[in-house]
Design a protein around this nucleic acid. Structure first.
Length: 218
DNA sequence: GCGACAG
DNA sequence: ATCTTGTCGC
């Protein structure tokens, strides 16, 4: 399938992350209504599945769902997740005909060793504002956060604020939010809270639900 | 060398 | 990510 990824490839990927990370821009996003999307990927054997859910904002009603199956090309390597998931994600997104103004991704944005996690990669390639909302930490340190919706502590990495450890629902563990591209952290936090009903924001939570059922049906 | 390490 | 039952707590 994808045994040992040569060090050459990883070097190339590292260079690409550094090169593309220079294109990242942090801007306040102020769109009040429109369509947003949630992306999630699932695996089974040598197959990889992707679901993209289009939702209305701020009502959060499902407008459309796109599913696509592909083959696993690379193994999971911390820091290089996007190269494993980007292929199916792009092929799935090519089918999306709606105009999306914001994308939620299951993973890190700039809270990454080289400031270019999955959300940054997706946002940069698609040229659409993106937010990384991960369930666990990849890099950075932070102070504990009281479990009250809206609370957060800064995620610090190399003496820079790269994200927020945010409580999206009372009495639940935090999620790790970081800007992907074309959005700043403040806006990312704002939209994440506006899209949260449960711990995981609706776009990503629904995408995960749909991709799981899609995988189990094929 | 040891420990950490998105999904 | 994936394989899995019951169980504690709001």
């Amino acid at each position: 399938m994808c045994a040992d990824i040569s060090k050459k490839i990883i070097e190339k990927w590292r260079d690409e992350q550094i090169r593309l990370s220079l294109k990242i821009r942090h801007l306040p996003l102020k769109i009040k209504s429109g369509l947003i999307a949630g992306i999630d990927v699932s695996y089974k054997d040598t197959y990889i599945y992707c679901s993209i859910v289009v939702l209305s904002f701020p009502k959060l009603e499902v407008v459309n769902i796109y599913n696509k199956k592909g083959e696993v090309e690379y193994p999971y390597i911390p820091g290089f997740l996007s190269f494993r998931e980007m292929p199916v994600v792009l092929r799935t997104f090519n089918r999306v005909k709606e105009d999306i103004f914001l994308i939620f991704c299951d993973g890190q944005g700039i809270a990454h060793p080289r400031g270019f996690g999955l959300a940054s990669h997706i946002g940069t390639v698609l040229r659409i504002p993106s937010i990384g909302c991960a369930k666990s930490r990849l890099v950075g340190e932070y102070r504990p956060v009281a479990k009250k919706k809206g609370n957060f502590s800064e995620l610090i990495y190399k003496n820079k604020v790269v994200g927020a450890v945010l409580i999206t629902k009372d009495n639940t563990n935090p999620v790790f939010v970081s800007a992907g591209n074309y959005i700043d952290l403040e806006s990312a936090i704002r939209y994440t809270l506006d899209c949260s009903v449960y711990r995981i924001p609706e776009p990503t939570r629904l995408a995960h639900k749909y991709v799981t059922s899609f995988r189990e049906s094929r």
